[in-house]
Design a protein around this nucleic acid. Structure first.
Lengths: 194, 194
DNA sequence: ATGGGCATGTAAGCGGTTACATGATTAT
DNA sequence: ATAATCATGTAACCGCTTACATGCCCAT
């Protein structure tokens, strides 16, 4: 759903074809924000089927023909309605962090493990978080330099805060695990649940 | 995948049947951490098919028969291997926040909108974040009182930090939007992308 | 009588990823 | 020679959600 609208949003700025939308995402939202081929082309067909975009095939001498899409008035209306948040359904009840960060699910059973087994795992995640913070900070600086759209800079800022938050949490978890009690792990094989 | 292992983890503590696993999740990880019926029962079949758990049907007088599962030695080995992070593949390149928080995708096109249209949206999200912070803080207090597993308390702590981080980001975004420039929105309908 | 709890499952669909399939041009 | 860029798409699969389907027991 939101991928569809993101594509529409790109097309709102200028007519484009699949491949150029992909490049646009990489350039304007940075690497790793790319769209999948397996999602991009079907999404374009779907949007066309709804009458939100229209195609024009442009033959080229030295490369395959490209399918240039532009947004129709209905498409523009749909896009603006989405953008204004009018499509928003009720927020789902399920928390959106637990099932989306596998490490948390593992963490729920860490009492089965010795601190020596847990610590290297946390350290690996910490390294990863560090790398992501650094990547996003670099990007944020670059965007500040080129005078990029402030809202898009805020997206990257969100990413920086997100990764920093994770980093700090992992450090706390590590601290607690290192200094943690060293009791024999109580893996209960109790009676069946009634 | 991780839902499967979470189920395995619950069964590691005590043999159980589908319905009781569901209740266990609600009680021990709190409401909204529940598992879907449409996911739970197929997952149990799958785990059984792999030989990681074994079923025993228990007839009852006053309620439907329940299928009591317990973990096999192979299942235990698989669980511990997952828990120790040995199954972990390479982290995906795509950032895990942008495509998972629809509001960010909309934010990327906010320059199409007037501040008056943006602000109420942000305020709605703020209210939601407030509610979630409050919910999770309540849960954290309750868990502190009942002496719950410290690792599980850390999961809730992660949630609190996550929602607080969002809250702060939304406040910054709101501040920037309120004091933002009020130029006529530049919605370019430029030349086609080459 | 109505609704909630106990207990099992299936079917359809959605959003997303990975891999496959093709093929010319251009830069190293 | 080889790899990268340009350019289009399809097929299979995975994880997850929603809705459907059944039926007995118990409390209000």
């Amino acid at each position: 759903m939101s991928v569809d609208y993101t594509i529409l949003g790109v097309l709102m700025e200028t007519p484009a074809h699949g491949y150029s939308i992909k490049k646009y995402m990489l350039k304007n939202f940075s690497k790793d924000f790319g769209i999948n081929d397996g999602q991009l082309y079907p999404a374009l067909s779907k949007l066309e089927g709804r009458g939100w975009i229209k195609k024009r095939v442009v033959q080229q001498r030295r490369s395959p023909a490209k399918h240039l899409y532009r947004v129709t008035p209905e498409g523009e209306a749909a896009f603006l309605s989405w953008l204004a948040g009018e499509e928003e359904g009720e927020a789902p009840n399920r928390f959106d962090f637990f099932w989306k960060f596998e490490f948390l699910q593992r963490c729920g059973f860490f009492r089965h493990l010795e601190p020596e087994t847990i610590r290297p795992q946390i350290e690996r995640k910490l390294t990863e978080a560090d790398r992501r913070v650094a990547d996003l900070e670099t990007l944020a600086e670059k965007m500040a330099g080129t005078g990029a759209d402030p809202y898009r800079r805020m997206i990257v800022d969100y990413g920086v805060r997100y990764q920093r938050m994770r980093r700090e949490w992992l450090e706390d978890l590590l601290a607690r695990t290192s200094t943690g009690e060293r009791e024999p792990r109580p893996v209960a094989a109790g009676a069946p649940v009634p």
